[in-house]
Every structure is written in C-alpha cells, then in structure tokens.
Write a protein that binds this DNA or RNA. Structure first.
Length: 728
DNA sequence: TAACATTCCGTTTTT
DNA sequence: CGGAATGTTA
C-alpha cells in the first residue's frame, strides 16, 4: 500500500489520502491528474475505506474511462468488480436500462447519435410543414440540446417572442416523437436519468446510499445538468472528488460551465482545494511561456506550473510569407527533426485552430513522402454502410424506430420512393403509430412493396433468432441485400464490404468483452446482447480513422490534442483572426477561451515548441493578410527565438535547412500595385491613431488608397495622401 | 433514380 | 477554393 504513495509528490499524496470529504483538485497540465484520480480509488480500496460497490468514477470520453480502468488494474493486485467507471452517458444509460420502466422508456430504447437526431428533427419539421429556412434544423437541434443540458424540458422553457415560442413548440413535438419511437438522444440520457432520480425517491435513496465516493475527471467541462446530476447522487453523504483545470476549459461553446468549478469550491470543497502545480511534461521555457500567456486571463482560480526539469530549448517562432511557405518550413523542420535528431514522427504533432488548415500541411507532407495521420473525420460506426446494417438491427430490436425504418426502407433500392413514403407517413400520423405498424394499413401497389419490405424484416428477424450476434449481423448483411449492393459497386463497394466484415468482427470482440460466460445459453439474452451492442455503437462511435500502421506525424486541431503530449509540437496559423479566431471574439469570454486553447496547445509539448504564422493565407478562395497572433506578443521574448524562414516575396525554395527538396517552379506572383513610399500589399505600417497594421489591398493612381488591417482596431480604407502611414 | 449542376457557406466537438 | 447540400434533368 505504501507502494501506492511512494511515487507521489506531496500535493499529490495529500489529494490521494484525503479523508472521506468533498475536494477540488486543481490539476495543471501534465501534473499527474489521472495518476491522482486512479491512485485515490486504489488507496480508498486498499485501506478498506470503501467497497468497490461504493465507487462511482465519471469521465467525459470513453477513452478516459478505459484508461482509468487500465491504470487501476495495474495498481491493484486483483481488479475489483462492481466499480462503476464510465462516461456520464454510459453511466446514465446503465441506470436507465436497469430502471427503464420507472424512467418511462421502452425496454429496448435506442440511442440517437447527433446525425440520427438531426434526421429526426428534419423529419419532424417536414411533417409539421415548417419552413426550414426560418427554422433551420441544426439551429433547432442545438436549441433542444442546450435546453436539455440546462435541465429544461419543453414545458418549462421560456419564450418571450413568437419565434422562440414556435421553437419550444417544436421541442415539445420532438420530445413526444422520440417517446413514441422509443429513442433517446444523448442529452436525453442525462436528463432522463436526472429526472428519474429526482422523482423516484426509493431509487434515489438507493443510489445515494450506495455511492460513497464519487470522482469526476475534467470537471471544468461539466455542463449544468451534469453538475446537478453529480450533486444529486452525492446528496446522501457521498464524498465528491473533482479533478479539473479551469485554464484548460475549452468547451464553453458546447455548454461546459467553468463556473461549476468556482461553485464547487465555495459550496463543497471548502478548505479541501489542492493544487497540483508541478509539471512533469514540458521543459522550463515552454512552461514559463504558457504561464505568461495564461496570466492574461482575468477569470482564473489561479495556478502556476513549475518544473525541475530545466529550461530546455527556446521556443521557435517561424514567420513565413504565405501558408504554403509555412507548410514548407514546417515540413523542412520535421525532416530535420527526424533525420538529424532522431525524433520519431509520431512524437511530432502539427496543431491548428480549424480543420481547414490541415490541407496545406497534408499536401506538403504528402508530396515530400512523409507519413502522417490526420485526426478527425468519419468514425467507424458513423460510416454509411455500417449505419445501414445497424439500422436493420435496430428495426429488429425495435420496429417503432422510424429513423432506422426510413434509413433502410429503400436501401438497397426496392422501389419505395418518396411518394409511397409520403402516404405511409401520413397514414402513420393519422393512426398515431410507427411507420412499421402503419405499413399494414396501406393498400394498392404502394402497400404491396412496403409489405414486402416488412416481410423482409420479419424474415431477417426469424433468421437471426437465437443466433450469436456476429452471425446475425452477417445474415443481416446478406439478406438485406447490402452485400449484393456493395458487391455491384465498382467504385467504393470493396471498402464498404470490408467495413461490414469489420462490423462482424466488432460484434465478436464485443461479445468477448461484454458477455458473462454463462449468459450465452439464455435465449432471452439474445435480444439483450443486440440492444447492448447497438448501445455500444451509439455511445462509442469508435476510432476516428484506421491506423496507418507505421509511425506517422500527427495532425489535429488544438481541441483534439487536449490530453495528449508530444516531444515536438508545431502550433500553426498563429494569426489574428485565425487564432484567436474572429468568430470567437464576439463572445465576451471568447478571447479568454481562445487563450486557454493556446495554453492547452503549448502545454502539449515536452521538449520543443514551434509557433508558426504566415503573412498571407489562402482562405475561402482568396488571399488574406493578417497580423501575427496577439498571443505571440504575450509570450516572454526571452523564451523565444525568432526565425524568419523566408523573407517576403523571395523565392520560396532557397531558405535554410540542409534538406534539398527538388527544385520547384517559381510561384506565379500577380503583379502588386506600386505604391509611393515603398509600400505594397503585405507591408507592415503604423498609424498614429490605429497603431500597427498590414496593408491588405490597394488602389493605385493619383488618389491612391490602401486597405489596412489594424487587428483589434479593425479594417480601414485610408487615402495615402492624407493618412500619415509610417513603414513599420 | 441517379448523375449532374448549382448554390451556399466557411471554428472548435464528445456522447 | 472545396464540400456539403440542395435543385435539375435525362
């Protein structure tokens, strides 16, 4: 047991060995947060302060939950059973499955992912004859989710104007429709679970008595409903142990409330606030720079990271004339890191603020033959062929699932067109039943084709009855016609078939992990396994992309990089308007969140940090000129080393780096307007009133005018004859 | 119904 | 510019 504590520093140890009390652990980046969380659980168990049964550990992502499981197994001699470790959604789902009747849900209720939810909303708008121009489905979706995440049902939603009243009305209809179809969206899982515990006193008391220690990871990311859920569960005297970092709160845009941390500190943690400030990840200069940056934020709980690892190298600031030059400079540097310093490519990360920026970087990496991997994009269970196969399974488990019905009723095509579906949908609405049930009431030719589809589903249900899940899925793929359809598709059929095979494999894997050995015999369990697998598919959409196999340079947004670390990190596109992003600045806390984002990005680096920016960038089809990011100015100059990779408008292939790329054709440069005073587009200038800026456009002639981007002072057209512009 | 044309839009995203 | 999402035509 003393082993558990041996490798902890004093504050970590203090956190781990806290008595059974509420506590807030302010864990800075790289300060051993996950270690503290898992060691705390292990310590409680090892000292018999709680039984495994009494532990509830909550994370946001499946990845974090899995890591916690794994690290706990490593800490304990035998892995205890009965612990509840999971995501908010996973845990709520678990409770709702156990108490589906009390929660007012169908026994086999299905979970809608975001795409399913959007499809459901679109269908609802169409049925209600709502103008989608006036009420965009996406907007309604976020309206509904935002309300649910605040714990607000349609009945309780406030609406002061006609427009909002209509949205609330649609929200109510959406609730009713989901209920009718036996489906629940992500937010519904949390809200429904919260309501269940509020309304059902015996159940509430049961769980309140059961969980003695509730531990929460990434507490700064909780929304209001999640916090309420935690407080409710802890209402029976459980100790809440919240770990988080307000400086790494980067999800306010999706409802996370950092204010929960301050509230928790005041109302729960009290004097049990522990700061983990020793950083084990980054070199001193990197930390010093990150600290200096984040000090510019006003709303903070306060924290300063330190390290005893030494200063390390200076941060390198790269300036390039254009985004293409930036990409070239970055890839040159990556080559050098790999060839001359022996850095493994998977220890190099290219970070950017927005996904669109990956293009130029990818292009350069590709043409230079460097292995790379881009995070983001389609995940396994989100692929259309996988979703189609799952929709057949969903229909078998729950015929009322109209979303699943509509997805596959005419896929592969079986002559059930829009006209037929319109009739079917009208009939279903009149009978107040599902499309599946309404099918029997159709007559004529339309009725016959739809009836054939229903027979097909019934047939598949029979075929798959009492069969192991993987085999059932294989049959579905066959009998539904998906197999034949993709076999006939020359272009991408092969890949899709491979993914369907992979789905069968996923089911096999799932069975191995989730089925108790003795349950397999029970015929009743068949349905349960199917529902469990469908739930798994919805709750864990799988990896973002297939592994490339070889070690590759990692490309991702700054958001996606949270929680990761690399030897060398490039933060690219550090320009006003991009990072910090223009759209973020409209919000009052916007700039601070962007700064936290920059802080997260910087603290990903262990040894080397590159900060790159370009003077011009191709954006939305036209060249934009921008000033270097405000964040660069907030870094301590003594920690930086400036490298102007290429001087403006010089040939791009003649700069530094021993790497000799093949000669490139000279870039086609449109002639720039000639302006008096040696000014041109891209020149840095200073104005008495507006400060520093960049010339982004110009009109020549006797009354020459220039457009100047003054950053925070805005974009101005100035007449050269009057405005006293100085070259800067 | 599917291929083709047109229009619109452009930050971050897990469950 | 490039994609996603519509709209149009054979």
């Amino acid at each position: 047991m003393s082993d558990l504590l041996a490798r902890l520093n004093p504050p970590q140890r203090e956190a781990v060995t806290l008595p059974s009390t509420h506590a807030l652990i302010l864990a800075g980046a790289g300060s051993g947060k996950t270690r503290v969380l898992t060691t705390r659980i292990a310590w409680l168990l090892a000292n018999d302060l709680v039984s495994p049964h009494g532990i509830l550990a909550v994370t946001f992502t499946n990845k974090a939950a899995k890591e916690m499981q794994a690290r706990l197994s490593a800490l304990l001699p035998i892995h205890p059973r009965g612990l509840w470790i999971g995501t908010f959604h996973g845990l709520c789902n678990r409770m709702l499955r156990a108490h589906w009747r009390d929660a007012g849900l169908a026994q086999t209720f299905q979970i809608l992912d975001s795409a399913d939810q959007l499809a459901t909303i679109k269908r609802l708008l169409k049925a209600a004859n709502v103008d989608v121009e006036k009420y965009p489905p996406r907007e309604l979706q976020s309206f509904i989710n935002a309300h649910k995440e605040q714990g607000v049902r349609a009945g309780a939603a406030e609406a002061w104007d006609h427009y909002t009243r209509k949205k609330v009305e649609l929200y109510a209809e959406y609730e009713a429709q989901c209920q009718r179809e036996g489906v629940a969206d992500f937010a519904e899982l949390l809200l429904r679970c919260h309501e269940l515990l509020i309304r059902n006193e015996p159940l509430r008391q049961h769980y309140q008595a059961r969980f003695r220690h509730i531990l929460i990871d990434e507490f700064q990311d909780t929304n209001r409903l999640q916090y309420d859920w935690l407080k409710l569960l802890a209402g029976g005297g459980a100790a809440l142990f919240a770990v988080g970092d307000d400086d790494q709160s980067i999800y306010a845009f999706r409802g996370a409330e950092v204010a929960n941390m301050r509230d928790f500190e005041q109302h729960y943690a009290g004097e049990h606030v522990i700061r983990l400030e020793q950083n084990y990840r980054s070199a001193g200069n990197i930390l010093a720079a990150a600290n200096a940056l984040i000090r510019n934020n006003r709303a903070r709980l306060g924290k300063n990271l330190w390290t005893d690892a030494g200063e390390g190298e200076l941060l390198r600031v790269f300036e390039s004339p254009s985004d293409l030059d930036e990409a070239r400079a970055v890839v040159d540097e990556i080559r050098a890191l790999m060839d001359e310093e022996g850095v493994s490519p998977d220890q190099i990360a290219l970070l950017y603020r927005s996904n669109a920026q990956s293009r130029a970087l990818e292009h350069e990496l590709f043409s230079r033959g460097l292995p790379y991997r881009v995070y983001g994009g389609l995940r396994f269970f989100e692929r259309q062929e996988v979703k189609h196969a799952l929709a057949y399974l969903r229909l078998i488990a729950n015929p009322d699932d109209d979303t699943a019905f509509l997805r596959v009723v005419n896929f592969p095509v079986r002559g059930i067109g829009a006209r037929t579906l319109e009739i079917l949908q009208t009939t279903a609405r009149q009978l107040n039943t599902s499309l599946y049930n309404a099918a029997a009431s159709l007559s004529g030719k339309a009725g016959a084709t739809v009836a054939a589809f229903i027979r097909l589903i019934e047939q598949i249900r029979d075929e798959t009855r009492a069969r192991p899940l993987p085999e059932s899925i294989a049959r579905v793929v066959q009998s539904s016609g998906l197999d034949a359809h993709y076999r006939a598709d020359k272009r991408e059929g092969e890949e899709r078939l491979a993914n369907l095979d992979e789905l069968v494999n996923a089911a096999t894997l799932f069975m191995g992990e989730h089925t108790a050995p003795n349950v397999a015999a029970a015929s009743e369990a068949e349905d349960d396994v199917l529902v469990a697998f469908l739930t798994h598919a919805a709750l864990e959409a799988g990896e973002h992309q297939a592994e490339t196999g070889q070690a590759a340079v990692q490309l991702m947004t700054v958001h996606a990089a949270k929680g990761l670390e690399f030897d060398a990190v490039f933060i690219t596109g550090l320009e006003q308007g991009l990072f910090p992003h223009d759209n973020a600045l409209e919000d009052h806390d916007g700039l601070e969140e962007e700064r936290r984002l920059m802080y997260v990005a910087m603290t990903r680096a262990r040894k080397r940090l590159y900060l790159t920016h370009a003077q011009s960038r191709l954006l939305h089809g036209q060249t934009r000129y921008a000033l270097p990011s405000l964040f660069l100015e907030e870094l301590p100059p003594e920690a930086l080393k400036h490298i102007t990779a290429i001087t403006p408008r010089q040939p791009a292939w003649s700069y530094n780096s021993g790497f000799s790329s093949r000669p490139r054709p000279a870039p086609v440069v449109p002639p720039l307007p000639e302006l008096p005073g040696g000014l041109t587009i891209g020149s840095n200038v200073r104005h008495a009133k507006f400060g520093f800026g960049v010339i982004v456009d110009a009109e020549t002639g006797s009354d020459a005018r220039v457009q100047v981007n003054f950053g925070s002072a805005g974009m101005k057209w100035l007449a050269l004859a009057y405005a006293k512009l100085e070259k800067a």
